[in-house]
Design a protein around this nucleic acid. Sequence first.
DNA 1: ATAGTAGGTGCACGATTGAACACCCAAGGT
DNA 2: ACCTTGGGTGTTCAATCGTGCACCTACTAT
Lengths: 196, 196
Amino acid sequence: MAENEKDRDYLGRLQDYYVDSKRIPSLQRVCELMGFASKTAAKKLLLRLENEGFVERTPDDDAWMPGSRFFERALADSHVPAGMPVAAENGAEPFMLDDYVVKTPSRTVMIPVKGDSMIDAGIHSGDIAVVERGTGASKGDFVVAIVDNEFTLKELGLERGRFILIPHNPAYPVIRPQGELEIFGVMVGLVRRYSH
Amino acid sequence: MAENEKDRDYLGRLQDYYVDSKRIPSLQRVCELMGFASKTAAKKLLLRLENEGFVERTPDDDAWMPGSRFFERALADSHVPAGMPVAAENGAEPFMLDDYVVKTPSRTVMIPVKGDSMIDAGIHSGDIAVVERGTGASKGDFVVAIVDNEFTLKELGLERGRFILIPHNPAYPVIRPQGELEIFGVMVGLVRRYSH
DNA sequence: ATAGTAGGTGCACGATTGAACACCCAAGGT
DNA sequence: ACCTTGGGTGTTCAATCGTGCACCTACTAT
């Protein structure tokens, strides 16, 4: 059941607060923000918003955090043509790109892509590969391996029980490492910028 | 003064925590995370990180929030540093994903890519297009246009003084709009996530 | 007419919070 | 050999936090 007008307004204030303070306020502060006199009202409001997916509890269940729909407005208020049957509208919209692509910051490294050996996989020279270290790589993953003291981005393949590195460009050969294959990390994302 | 190795590690744990809980933990939880026995240690850590710009106080000065540098990610070089393995943050300049790709947040919108009409340009279905509105588009730019009430991502071309939309996939036809071509925005970036 | 429900008040309580202060100790600088 | 500094421990304390419960009061459905 779509939330009512009042809650819309309340949500707006929460969003405004979030912009400045980057967190969902405490119940007491919610009261101040909304003009409530009782913390219970604040809590009930949060529960309502939780139902709609605007806020969530933290994994530790000890505080509130923005939910998947919390940032939804970014696309919504950009008025698009009347009809707008497009899927783009309501899709989960993680405004923080970082969030979208980085799951474990402490183990994530950005590596600029050099060369066109993966061009058929839509990975261009100059793109930035988002690489997660210390994650087990399996066949089919795109991995950053260390070959000749350089980073190499390839698909991890398996051939007669041995790992091989498969480029996505017919002009490049498959790499069959002699000794042990040193894998730096697994590619979990890609970022590209179009110059302007 | 670049923070030391230990703090680097602590910061990493904070960042990991943030991904899940979207907030800077309480002093007590910082102790758990870092293995401190005393909240004072936690507070001093936060103060150190504040000095470096990784965390800030909220406007109400009642809690911590991520600072401007909190979302910095390690950017590695293409050739592997001799010493290896750990901490790829050799000379690496800090790299912020959002800043890298989004220059004007208020006019920037993320649009999921549907279809494979741009596959030869390395743009796959499911990728997220970073689109800047209100920027003048010129020939050769990738633009999001509105055709038949739907978003379409194509290269903007010019033919006999008229704008046309060029797909990057031989299976698709060039679009030659009759009336006026409605351009929603210019593609300035691309983000892709590899499922895991 | 009445019952149910949604949004809100008011209050009491135990848990958790951050601030403050005294202290420890290993590493460096002089 | 001395002293300073930085990272950390241990403890106390008042403020704030979230929860639970009882109650109120429109609005709505039957």
